[in-house]
Design a protein around this nucleic acid. Structure first.
Lengths: 326, 326
DNA sequence: CTGAAAGCGCTTACAG
DNA sequence: CTGAAAGCGCTTACAG
């Protein structure tokens, strides 16, 4: 079985440097070119990537660090990244960290060791260790979904998403509001959305209570039960679609009818929110587009082209059935 | 900045072969060991993977080919694979093919070129090209979710899953049945589930009509509309949870109440099926466990250990609210 | 346009 | 236990 460039060179009757040149688009005469092409095809020769990378000192790989794989947002973003990267002849490498911060840091160093050209980081939080890693490895990093003054980032406009939801809730006549958010350690989801929401309420006479829960539907169900035990909001504004789904479930279990007894909203625009009954009023996030943009941006960074430090994607209010007029 | 093994060797005052030996757990004296360890730590030295792989001719990478990223089944399976691979010190590389068969084949060759130790293939269909690729690359391949006489595979027990659903449907008194399946090109989902289902009905006086649709919820919605236009089944048995979700949506839009007017079942056991109302009766598939088992199996193959050609995972009937007693 | 040679950063027998 | 040397499969100046 033929395997190395030397074999090909020998068979084609040329020097291996010539084969290499052929492979890399260097100048080779028409005749030689054809002969090499033939031999390569015939023997199904494929260059050894390691040898190439060892010499060339770079790869066409972009590493992507994700906190989890089983989330609509992540999947969509990854598909967008993959698509765009592929069309630019880059390859995507995924490292899942299962929401373990330590593994996130590890993943960054691992990627560095594998000499990826760039790293896309989908992190919920950014801390000192991330910054230190980013600095040490000396490889372009793009943060997606979160923002940080010391890093390039691509974000969704969480503030205005929150603002839009707030306006809509007001317009629909709600004044007794429960806001079910998440930890403030997550700047985008925990803080920005809430701030946008708060902003929209300024100067109004609403009564809003703020609560916090985890990202899982089951957590949200429990939180919702508690809220409904101790108060009677006309609407629960949830920081994510998943949380909203959990709230809807909790309401259903208590025979509370949505939206006539209780309205609910989410953030995200997951596919499922359009299938369930009632359909969920939410703000659509453009995850796939974010992935594509992230891919384009990291390539720019890799190529050392100029780039804005922050790229922001717009969101879109989806007025559906889960919010009732009061 | 220190980067190579030679640098480390020089600083530690030993030969680079000694450093290499240290790195690979060879025999090194206590004193030398400590010195090297020190220097490595101090300079944050990490070996160049390419050089290592070039020499060693193997990697600890397992390539995983997936048809799509935005599916519950895929996500769960990937997480299982990743988890198990990681604990065995292997790394997972994911290649998404967006359901493009050509890219699937390409991905296999790509992985081969990158000298992965093994490949896990989540494919909906297996054809000549897959087999040819599998043969040519000379790298262990494990098929997940589908079965093929010429390949090692790990599958869910689709036949009995179908059988279980069938029995349950019968027990609940349904006799006017619509079975909404998918293409028979997909052996597992398109054929096995249906066959198991059929088997359970043998000798009964049920009337069953078989239909076919795509995997997307929107496709299923359209298909369901048509079925409901031309017939009045008491139940629609769907080949996947997604299809069932689509059917439920279509029913809702027509003011058909589930389960009192129409019962529905799925296959899969996606998280969401427990959150929606009514909760969906379905068969639980152990995707994450499948991923873990797949990882263990591919490692066995890589290590040239003995293995059954087919590993089959059991499923579990989830009796919930979407099926009414007739 | 083409080839000989050096070198990328490791590992692996082989001596000592 | 340790080191010198060869070699993994490429690429890249440098000559010609």
């Amino acid at each position: 079985m033929i395997k190395t460039i030397s074999d090909i060179a020998a068979i084609a009757g040329v020097a291996k440097s010539t084969v290499s040149r052929y492979l890399n688009g260097g100048s080779v005469s028409q005749a030689t070119r054809q002969r090499i092409e033939q031999v390569i095809k015939e023997h199904h020769y494929v260059p050894n990537t390691f040898a190439q990378s060892l010499k060339a000192r770079r790869t066409n790989i972009i590493g992507t660090v994700v906190p989890r794989l089983d989330s609509f947002a992540t999947s969509q973003t990854l598909m967008g990244i993959d698509e765009e990267l592929r069309s630019a002849n880059f390859q995507m490498l995924i490292s899942n960290t299962s929401q373990d911060m330590e593994r996130e840091i590890e993943a960054i160093y691992d990627f560095a060791r594998q000499k990826v050209s760039g790293i896309i980081l989908l992190a919920a939080q950014v801390n000192e260790e991330h910054l230190k890693a980013a600095e040490e490895i000396n490889i372009p990093i793009l943060l997606v979904g979160q923002e940080h003054s010391q890093l390039y980032s691509l974000i969704h406009d969480d503030f205005h998403a929150g603002y839009k939801i707030g306006r809509h809730v007001l317009e629909m006549g709600h004044r007794q509001i429960a806001y079910l958010g998440v930890t403030e350690k997550d700047i985008s989801v925990g803080i920005r959305r809430k701030e946008g929401f708060k902003k929209s309420l300024e100067g109004t006479e609403c009564s809003v209570s703020y609560y916090e829960t985890g990202f899982r539907m089951t957590d949200a169900m429990a939180a919702a039960s508690q809220i409904l035990d101790e108060s009677t909001p006309s609407i629960i504004v949830c920081a994510t679609d998943n949380i909203a789904l959990g709230v809807m479930k909790a309401a259903y279990l208590r025979q509370i009818v949505i939206p006539s007894d209780l309205s609910v909203t989410g953030f995200g625009g997951y596919d499922i929110t359009e299938i369930i009954h009632p359909t969920l009023t939410t703000v659509r996030y453009f995850y796939k587009e974010a992935g594509q943009a992230a891919a384009r941006n990291i390539i720019k960074l890799v190529r050392d082209e100029e780039m804005d430090q922050v790229t922001m994607l717009d969101t879109e209010l989806l007025e559906r059935e889960s919010v009732d007029k009061r």
